[in-house]
Design a binder for these strands. Sequence first.
DNA 1: AAATGAGTTTCATGGAGTGAAACAGCCATT
DNA 2: AATGGCTGTTTCACTCCATGAAACTCATTT
Lengths: 247, 247
Amino acid sequence: MEEGKLTVRSVERAMDILLCFVDVKELSLTEIANKVVLHKSTVHRLLASLEGKGFILRDGATEKYRLGFRLWELSANLVQSDDMGVVLLPEMERLRDQIGETVSLYVRDGNERVRIQAVQSNQAIRRVAPVGARMPLYVGASSKVLLAYADEAIQESVLLTADGAVGVDRDVFLQMLSETRKLGFATSIEEREPGAAAVSAPILSRAGKLAASLAVSGPSNRLTPEKMLAHVPQILEAARRMGTMLR
Amino acid sequence: MEEGKLTVRSVERAMDILLCFVDVKELSLTEIANKVVLHKSTVHRLLASLEGKGFILRDGATEKYRLGFRLWELSANLVQSDDMGVVLLPEMERLRDQIGETVSLYVRDGNERVRIQAVQSNQAIRRVAPVGARMPLYVGASSKVLLAYADEAIQESVLLTADGAVGVDRDVFLQMLSETRKLGFATSIEEREPGAAAVSAPILSRAGKLAASLAVSGPSNRLTPEKMLAHVPQILEAARRMGTMLR
DNA sequence: AAATGAGTTTCATGGAGTGAAACAGCCATT
DNA sequence: AATGGCTGTTTCACTCCATGAAACTCATTT
């Protein structure tokens, strides 16, 4: 896989250094050098550049490096949740490339769910479903997820509409939602559409609130229950990562 | 002033590009190029590098550039207010170099104020006051600031303790706090310590809450009222900048 | 059609970033 | 004290890589 590279090496290295701090608060020079696999002196120079611009600072006591205050100034203008479709797209593409099936993003709107973003599987047979499409909230993996993490009032409201449409038992329904919360994901097989299966996981925002549901879907003969379960860890991880990108 | 430069030019330029977004949400390539005064192609390459690492993204609709989601991931590990002393130190040093007097940082703790950081004037005569020192909250420029922006309950509580210690009139006291809020800073001349004068301004966090007070202090024969007033704009600006660095 | 202005790519050039090695501090050991 | 091991920092020759002018697209405007 030859990547189209018209980028600046030292900048990429500097960004890699910043990214060392995603899960660690402070690091020493050599720790960073080991992480990014670069020579001490190179890292030192890059750090000095970042520090000069306020993106890195040194703790006076420990002499270790930390993220600098300039990132605060920037964080005010970060993408908002309403840009979700844009922000999460690269991650969705990544998941699609991992799994090879269509990946969709849904949010709840009233008693419906609406697909706000989708990246299609590049396989021959694929499910087609346009962005913007609206679907009922009581059927399909994504619906289960969106409902499971919603307020009770909303669950009740959907139960009312669904009650008339399909013969769903109230207790079974609530049991299913509880199960979804416990598992952390939901599946559906030929539920909404014949021949189609899907796995879905919640995207919880940084604040812990449900922001959207992420779904992987495909033809049920290709996306077998075993395959679906095998994909769950990757889907959960992707959803977790996406959550960290949202307010 | 010859700066010690062992830094990487392209990285600094890339950071300058990121900093274009402190007060703007999205920018086009040429807008950025104009801001940082670099040729289009150079900016294009740097942007591609930043985009590749997720620090910049392009809005699908407008085709303009925005800050990327990677900054979210980093913002989780940003310095907290309890690191204030560390975070604000460089700015304090800068102010000290501008004004040439001792710069201190105070926070309120109960009915006292405590110096949590200080950079000493490098002049011959200088005030000595160790970090960690605690002082009463009813006297001195910093106390006025810390109180002026505090809850009324705290003001009352201090009034009670102060009432016994020094003969302060309640109305005069409250009037003084109101005046401090109106001006946005406070001064004190030989109030707490004979021969010492100080100017202080509040550091308001990003959320608008009082985080600390910034004080410039020195011998009152050198730090005359005129000098103090002349320094006010720089102090206010420094305090404002520091505020943007705090939650 | 021609012209403007956006973004992108190409390419020769030399200046800039690189990493090995040496240097300088700072604690533990010996 | 002297040693060794560990940091972070600086130096420096080499060459490679970032640079910016210019050429090239592709829309949109005149």
